[in-house]
Nucleic acid binder design. Structure first.
Lengths: 129, 129
DNA sequence: ACTTGACCTTCCCCTTACTGGAAGCCCTAT
DNA sequence: ATAGGGCTTCCAGTAAGGGGAAGGTCAAGT
């Protein structure tokens, strides 16, 4: 398989796949013409990566998850720990964003949004508290 | 005021303040010794920037908001439009993160987290769907 | 045989919003 | 004179790729 086909199958841009090779997540063989020659193994890994990334795991988390995935002697506790940490970071982000949403919603609602300069949004951001 | 004092007052790292000057958000004067000499004006702007950034506005949004803040002839509609766009992006992010949280929560709950290799999290990320 | 177009390669710069660190000047106190 | 802290610039790096140039390769059509 060339990179184009793998790209379609894994649902990842070719650029991303080359990048993943660069940082050592996959190690595809090479054809005599220099083209990358992907095996099923790499396709599986890339699919794994695409799904992990879609769940918001960082590349470094993905690297570890991939190792665990390939390690038949792993402990599920190690996987769970990574996932739980990641989950709590997501919850923190959601909480932060909810705070922003709350504030912004109030401000947007309070702003007339007409051609006059008076604006509660700017009032809130500016020095006058 | 030197950068240290402004940093404390605005609640922004000195590095960040220098960066904001670099990209043209503020233009502090200079003392004869080369030190930046901040006026009230810059302190106000930096406070404005700190608050805008805390609400998640991008630097480019902040740049425009700052211009509107200083423009007495502005229309509040322009401010409101930026805030509303930003709000909807935040809501989109929250929604994406909620999806991730949902999935991750289920997976984490399903994983035994012991010393055995069997793991629903990896099963879900791997090829076997 | 030749050309065309799609595909592949590497390489380098760009992005966001800073952060860290090195090398060196300035100022004040002891 | 020296120590310290604060200030300066500049360089490099972060996360995770994206854009695009310059050029090699392959398969199909003429």
């Amino acid at each position: 398989m060339n990179i184009g086909e793998v790209s379609t199958r894994a649902g990842l841009p070719a650029k991303t796949i080359r990048y993943y090779e660069d940082i050592g997540l996959i190690k595809p063989l090479r054809d005599t013409n220099g083209y990358r020659a992907f095996r099923q193994q790499e396709l599986h890994k890339l699919t794994f990566l695409a799904r992990s990334r879609a769940l918001g795991f960082s590349i470094e988390d993905c690297r570890i998850l991939l190792q665990l995935y390939e390690d038949q002697g792993r402990s599920s506790a190690d996987v769970k720990a990574i996932a739980r940490d990641h989950l709590s970071q997501i919850e923190q982000k959601i909480s932060d964003l909810n705070d922003m949403r709350e504030t912004l919603t109030h401000l947007v609602d309070a702003c007339a949004g007409d051609d006059r300069p008076d604006c509660p949004i700017l009032n809130s951001l500016g020095v006058g508290r």
